[in-house]
């Protein structure tokens, strides 16, 4: 476990907790953006350059902005006087803790944990050119389907959010 991983992991975890607990929704969204940046850093550290940068482009540049706009459009930026957590909050935290306990137990006790670290990964084997080649050959069909999905999602989002015509 290197120092850079420790820093990135701390950044991700702290900002994720902040994103889930802060009262002000805009602060939550900004913390979420920090989480995304930290995750992108983790991806870069793992040698997935293209995906890491795509993560920043899509999540910080688009999804975070989208969330912020939604917060402003639904006027929930200013937290009300009421409770921020639902009635079953304790149960939810309990479930999450249980899930983490199970996952942690599984991870630490699995065969993967005992496997020695693989040899140093050669970054030149995962170039953008190779990645593009894979996308254009093996994964061409999923890519096209994805394009269709994105178009459909865009049209769907526009139609859902479209102001209903005032008929009367």
């Amino acid at each position: 476990m290197s120092a850079s991983f420790a820093i990135l992991a701390a950044l991700v975890v702290v900002s994720a907790i902040a994103a889930m607990t802060l009262r002000n929704l805009v602060h939550c969204a900004l913390c979420l953006a920090v989480t995304f940046i930290g995750l992108a850093g983790t991806y870069l550290q793992l040698g997935a350059q293209f995906v890491g940068l795509a993560q920043v482009l899509v999540y910080v540049g688009a999804v975070a902005i989208l969330i912020v706009f939604a917060i402003l459009l639904t006027r929930s930026g200013e937290p009300g006087p009421g409770r921020q957590f639902s009635a079953t909050a304790l149960m939810g935290v309990g479930i999450a803790l249980a899930v983490f306990a199970v996952l942690g137990k599984v991870i630490t006790s699995s065969a993967v944990a005992k496997r020695p670290a693989p040899p140093m990964f050669d970054g030149s084997k995962a170039t953008v050119a190779k990645f593009g080649e894979r996308l254009m050959t093996d994964y061409i069909l999923p890519l096209e389907v994805l394009a269709l999905l994105l178009t459909a999602a865009m049209i769907g989002a526009v139609i859902i959010a479209l102001r209903e015509k005032e008929t009367k």
């Binding site: 900004l30 953006a33 940046i37 992108a40 920043v56 482009l57 910080v60 540049g61 902005i65 912020v68």
Partner: peptide
């Protein structure tokens, strides 16, 4: 370049 540029919006 574009990823970093898109962070300016936030």
């Amino acid at each position: 370049f574009f990823a970093v540029g898109s962070a300016t919006e936030l």
